[in-house]
Nucleic acid binder design. Sequence first.
DNA 1: ATCTTGTTTTTGAAGAGTCAAAAATACTGG
DNA 2: CCAGTATTTTTGACTCTTCAAAAACAAGAT
Lengths: 224, 224
Amino acid sequence: MLASSTVENYLKAIYAGVNGLRPGLRLLPMGHLASALGVTPGTATTMVKTLAEAGLAEYEPYVGVALTPQGERLAGLVLRRHRLVELFLVRVMGFGWDEVHDEAEHLEHVVSDRLIERMDTMLGHPDADPHGDPIPNADGTISPQPQDTLLTCPLGQPVTVTRVLDQNRAFLQFVETNRLKPGETIQVDGRDESADSVLVTGTEARRLTIGARAASKLQVRAAG
Amino acid sequence: MLASSTVENYLKAIYAGVNGLRPGLRLLPMGHLASALGVTPGTATTMVKTLAEAGLAEYEPYVGVALTPQGERLAGLVLRRHRLVELFLVRVMGFGWDEVHDEAEHLEHVVSDRLIERMDTMLGHPDADPHGDPIPNADGTISPQPQDTLLTCPLGQPVTVTRVLDQNRAFLQFVETNRLKPGETIQVDGRDESADSVLVTGTEARRLTIGARAASKLQVRAAG
DNA sequence: ATCTTGTTTTTGAAGAGTCAAAAATACTGG
DNA sequence: CCAGTATTTTTGACTCTTCAAAAACAAGAT
């Protein structure tokens, strides 16, 4: 019943990969998984077969992989640890939100339940990490609420940033310097399909134009 | 230059083992190392040869093993992480001093330099962990000061407990309930060679008799 | 349908860390 | 000094995770 760090990383990657699939697809192709993990396709295949035998994944040869409910629960627990650790590092240890990902990547595999619950208490049972990613509860369950992004939200209405879907350091810094972090209230004034761009107005009438790719990484909800 | 968790554990065990050797001996026998690590002797031999090849240990077949200066530095860094983490868990996270050892055992291998230095700053650059074990500095150096124990200190003079040389949970709890933790001031009133016992007076005239074995695990210095 | 291209699976091998059991060595009592 | 005991080293094997390269397969284009 012990999940090694490696297994936990595969579960996380499958979880994230499946959730990032274009709608309609249910199974994550091996190649995607392999490159997400930085291993060769053959390695991913081998490991996924092991996961399937352990009842953690559902594997269809030449098609792809998804998590079983059990695997999903496990992945949720890893995510919970990761995200609580990230928030802890930011709130308690004073790190920047753009520099905690790697550390959490390591800590998530060794931190005990007791320590995690302590952090959870200390942080007031938060429901999202510094990037707005939801923190699963102690049984590994996540309550997924579908959200608009800057690419899909209504125009001309104030919205609050809730989540940033990219842990890339440079991107996080871009978000920070442009005051687009979770909690900020902004507004989309227009979109240009052909220019592939989105026009955003921030507080104090700051305006900027960002690409559609970036816009799709910022989740928002109606401000209020 | 990467030391795996396993290597780090061997270094720690060799360090501790050599330092716990009866005076005169310089090399830690394989058997001791093996049982300290909970592996078979053959495994220890294999690993120690690897360490020797890497320049971290000095190995004499059929005799034993010790650390090279380089290995000692590495061990010092692991100890630094371990002890800062322990203190952090007690002071910041509110854990009991008797329940942080195992957690630190895991965290010591994954915590980054940045995080460790953050903890160090946060804790005010402490020089000892909750058990009084000295915290090596950032270059892995420990300044070892020879200390008296309850078995060797002068009689009838107030002394302050500085260090507890046994991480065993039950022993730590015994120490705590009897107010013998580092910082407490006590006094040794007498020793009985044949009874193998030591008579201790604590604050408020509390008196108790402890065995020599236990007494030798409590380091003290003249109170002042 | 067949060919080509791209992905996936297999196969054989490697390194790290471990064990069990056999072989070698050291140590101790007579 | 020799026998018997205890410790240490070797040997062969196993698990986990990985890679490179060969083989198998799927799918689109002609």
